[in-house]
Computed example of a mutant assay.
Amino acid sequence: MHVRNLPTPVKRVVHLGSRSYGRLTAESRMLPSFLICGGQRCGTTSLYRALAAHPVVLKAVLHKGVHYFDTSYQRGLDWYRAHFPTLRTSERITERYGVPAQTFESSPYYMYHPQAVARIARDLPFAKLVVLVRDPVERAYSQHHHEVARGFEIERDFGSAIALEPARVHQQETRLARDPQHYSFAHQHHAYRARGEYARYLSVMVQHVGRERIHVVESERFFTEPDPVYDEVCAFLGLPADLERPTFEQHNARPRQSDMDPRVRRDLWNYYQSHDEALAGWLGRTPIWRRL
């Protein structure tokens, strides 16, 4: 039985035991050579599962997202290493395929937490970052539905949640940047509009890791043309794309929301225009959602 299918109390015990053992063997474990850093509600689960199916890629042992560089950094690097496969496992994969094995994880909040990328640059100085972007209006609406479904959002009306956002997240980004111990629930779960300002976050990433270590993927293109997008990601990561092809599926997806208040949609569409224009510089073209 897969750990994912176990009752929650049993999963907690299994995870605790695995992490405890992982800490004891930390020095003999891999660290990620790449990370999926976001954006949130942009298809990260689908890309994660496609890459995890690659024969020379080893995923994190327990979780898709470890959330070390954002909300768990105080736990230390040995705790982080405990989540990944052993070097011996890596060696067996390398021997079998003649290509260096890689491991990774996917924590979408890394893109947004003010300290995450600097921490990644310090602890994983050679790791590459994969970022997915999506129509920011649909992304915001999808996030709101997702947070409501998880019980993290009590305001069920999307327009009202957008109106509340400035007060909820006021100065939280500044506090997170200044205080390594600070945690903001609102910043992690209620920053709906801010999450779609992709170019702003990408510019911060560049300052810490350089443009050559960042690859941006449009989610709409990944879902409509998965094969060439997968090949491009593999080329960026130095992975052979022709060993085994994954089955491309869309995970955690919500359909386009036609029930969004037209006024809210229009206001967000206009708000994101300058941000999308800045993103075009990264993509080398107008974002897909601006051309549809």
Rank of each mutant, 00 (worst) to 15 (best):
R290D: 10
G76R: 09
D78Q: 09
D70Y: 05
P228F: 03
A82K: 03
L237R: 09
P180N: 07
R213C: 10
R49E: 10
R81E: 04
L176D: 00
G38W: 09
R139P: 00
V99T: 09
V169R: 03
E105Q: 08
R29I: 02
Y110H: 12
V217R: 03
R96N: 05
P240G: 10
D70V: 11
V10M: 07
V66H: 02
E244N: 07
R156S: 14
V131T: 01
R266G: 11
Y109N: 15
R175P: 03
Y110V: 05
I120V: 14
M30C: 08
T25R: 15
L237N: 07
T86V: 08
D70C: 05
F185P: 08
T25G: 02
G98K: 07
V133M: 06
A241S: 15
L62S: 05
G284Y: 09
D78V: 06
A199W: 10
H15Q: 11
E225H: 12
V133L: 06
S18Y: 10
G281M: 08
C42S: 15
S33P: 06
R150L: 11
R23E: 01
A186R: 07
H182L: 10
V137S: 00
R81T: 00
A121F: 03
I93P: 09
V137E: 02
G151C: 06
P246F: 13
L132S: 00
L31A: 06
Y73P: 02
W269D: 12
Y198D: 11
D267H: 11
K11R: 15
H113W: 09
R92K: 13
I214D: 01
D267Y: 03
A161T: 10
V204M: 07
L239T: 07
S203V: 11
F152H: 13
G17P: 14
Q172M: 13
P125A: 06
A127V: 07
R4V: 15
A127M: 06
H190D: 09
A241F: 14
E277P: 06
R263Y: 10
Q115A: 11
E27M: 15
T8C: 05
L279W: 08
I120S: 01
T86I: 08
S18A: 14
R256Y: 11
T103W: 05
S274F: 11
R96Q: 15
Y230M: 06
S20N: 13
R156A: 14
H146Q: 06
W269G: 14
I162D: 01
R122W: 08
V169D: 09
Q250M: 13
E218R: 03
A149R: 15
Y48G: 02
R200G: 07
E277C: 09
L35N: 02
V66K: 05
I36K: 03
R193K: 11
E277R: 13
R285T: 13
V130D: 00
H144G: 05
P55S: 01
P255S: 04
D179Y: 08
R168Q: 01
A177H: 01
R291N: 12
V229D: 00
R119T: 00
E225K: 05
R29H: 02
F34G: 04
R139T: 00
Y80L: 15
Y73F: 14
D259V: 06
E232M: 07
A26Q: 00
Y201A: 02
R200S: 12
F126R: 15
